[in-house]
Design a binder for these strands. Structure first.
Length: 445
DNA sequence: GCTAATGATTCGCA
DNA sequence: TGCGAATCATTAGC
């Protein structure tokens, strides 16, 4: 049955949606069982419909009067309920199915980003968290602290503006929604507006405001990005490493000269030992990065290779230094092994890399001293240290006499093509299977 | 201000 | 993806 027919049938007397016709008029049976009365009512309804159709052509006063007349008409409740039903079953059912929109991915991205940057969500330091963590790692250099506080202050400003605006939007949205709902409820007395329709209207309003909010979120994201890029740009300013950091890196480099390619674990360990600075950390966006170690080794390898002669002196300095460390370590190990336990050869190197153990610093020296350490209980690494020490001492003396000719650090790590030796050759290469601590004992065996 | 040193970046390659 | 090489940009010493 089509709607038009149903209207006619309903108006003809069938109870519609629980409404009974008011005005004391007894409803006739459907389909005009009473032919005379049915014709009269059809005429009546035809007039009403005609009045409705022509109401817009009339003046406002006349229209109001007509409207009032229609509202008071005895058929009005029946017509009203019919119209409600028609709206319910046609337009709304179709729209309702279409309005189940999935969450906007763009909005989700913005939300996630604002959350990650600490602009949205609970205040927890947000985007400055990384900076703060890095600051802690760096030991809090004064200039960095200033930059951090500056960054945090600006981020806080953005956060405040964002929340203020968001609050305004939400307030406006709520006010407007309430206003519209009241209007619709008011109008629902005179025209067919179902609760579902009101609900749908509220949804539309929310979506409109949500799109405005998205613009706000987008602008906020852009502001944060600009701030971040400026902040990081400022951090890209080159700062020299501390002397200690340079020494640590140099120690590693020269003790692994045949293969100066630290593993990820070694890089991490080196970064920790070097007390990585904020600028270097944040330049990669993470306080845990150790890319500065890679940069340093990349630069060092290139510059060493380009000018080996220039680095000879430096190399020997580190050789002597590590030899002294080795001596201390070896002596301690010997003492420990003799005094305490015959089966505890691993003495460690008291905080610095166990460089002499690496062996490749003195690859060509291993066979020079045939006499092994007599303490049979001492492990191989201690033995190696002692051997190394003996050899370094002798070599250092020779170097002073014949600089350039008998350099302690001959570029043995470089092959004929200018590349470094194959990584499998030196014993110093840190196995990828070793843990971070392996930096200190990469060639113990 | 000049220059060397040096950390960071970029690009091409394997 | 990591490397070498070139280059940029900044710092430090004079």
């Amino acid at each position: 049955m089509d709607d038009q027919a149903r209207i006619m049938q309903s108006i003809g007397g069938v109870s519609l949606a629980g409404h009974s016709v008011q005005g004391g008029m007894a409803l006739p049976p459907p389909h005009g069982h009473d032919g005379t009365d049915g014709d009269g009512r059809k005429q009546d309804i035809g007039d009403i419909l005609h009045q409705i159709m022509t109401i817009t052509d009339q003046s406002l006063d006349e229209a109001q009067a007509k409207k009032h007349g229609l509202n008071c008409h005895r058929m009005k409740p029946a017509l009203f309920s019919v119209l409600c039903e028609i709206k319910e079953k046609t337009g709304l059912s179709i729209r309702g199915a279409q309005e189940e929109d999935p969450p906007d991915p763009q909005l989700m991205r913005l939300d996630n980003m604002l959350l990650a940057e600490g602009v949205a969500g609970p205040e927890k330091g947000g985007g400055s968290a990384a900076a703060a963590a890095a600051a802690a790692a760096s030991g809090g250099a004064a200039d960095n602290s200033i930059e951090h506080s500056d960054y945090r202050a600006k981020l806080t400003q953005i956060r405040q503006i964002y929340h203020t605006e968001l609050e305004k939007y939400e307030q406006a949205c709520n006010e407007f929604t309430t206003h519209v709902m009241n209007l619709l409820r008011e109008q629902s007395r005179t025209r067919p507006i179902s609760p579902k329709e009101i609900e749908r209207m509220v949804g539309i309003i929310h979506r409109k405001f949500s799109s405005i909010q998205m613009q706000l979120k987008q602008s906020t994201c852009e502001a944060v990005m600009i701030l971040r890029s400026r902040f990081l740009d400022a951090r890209r300013k080159r700062r020299n490493f501390s002397k200690q950091a340079t020494e640590i890196l140099n120690e590693y480099f020269y003790s692994h000269l045949s293969n100066p390619y630290p593993s990820e674990e070694a890089k991490e360990e080196l970064a920790k030992k070097c007390s990585i600075t904020v600028s270097q950390c944040l330049s990669k966006g993470s306080p845990l990065c150790f890319s500065f170690v890679s940069n340093w080794f990349g630069n060092k390898r290139i510059r060493y290779k380009k000018n080996i002669g220039k680095f000879q002196e430096e190399a020997n300095l580190y050789a002597a230094k590590t030899a002294v460390n080795a001596a201390h370590a070896a002596a301690a190990a010997v003492q420990n092994s003799q005094a305490n336990s015959p089966t505890t050869p691993n003495s460690g190197s008291s905080g610095s890399f166990n460089l002499p153990n690496s062996g490749d610093m003195f690859l060509s020296m291993q066979s020079l001293n045939g006499d092994s350490y007599q303490g049979a209980q001492v492990g191989a690494n201690v033995q190696s240290q002692v051997d190394t020490l003996r050899h370094v001492i002798s070599q250092t003396a020779g170097y002073n006499d014949a600089l350039g000719g008998n350099a302690m650090y001959s570029p043995h790590g470089l092959n004929a093509n200018g590349g470094w030796q194959d990584a499998t050759t030196p014993s110093s290469v840190i196995s990828p299977t070793e843990g971070p601590g392996s930096v200190q004992s990469d060639t113990s065996n």
